[in-house]
């Protein structure tokens, strides 16, 4: 799965879920927290993105991710592994 597509999906959900955010402001090397996201916002952005991309990664594997770029990489790895089902 190509990173541009993943990045576009994450961006879309960030724009839907975060306050006062412009697409041009989003930088992949930053954390969602830098754009005002709180923990529940991040859960929602990540859940919505995984649902749209049809990948499942356990919450424990997402805990150490610090930037949007790292999240996109994790999604690529998750997609390559065919998705890891939590349940």
């Amino acid at each position: 799965m190509d990173k541009e597509k993943i990045y576009a999906v994450i961006k879309k959900h960030m724009l839907e879920n975060l306050e006062d955010l412009n697409e041009s402001d989003i930088e992949p090397q930053k954390s969602m927290k830098d754009f005002g996201a709180n923990s529940l916002d991040i859960i929602e952005v990540v859940s919505c993105s995984m649902r749209e991309l049809n990948i499942k990664i356990p919450r424990s594997e997402l805990a150490d991710i610090n930037t949007i770029d790292e999240l996109a990489d994790k999604f690529i790895a998750g997609a390559a592994a065919g998705g890891i089902n939590v349940k």
């Binding site: 356990p58 919450r59 424990s60 805990a63 939590v86 349940k87």
Partner: peptide, 13 residues
Amino acid sequence: PETKKTIEELYRK
């Protein structure tokens, strides 16, 4: 049994 697993997973900090 799934419930306990889900709680442990989702409450992880």
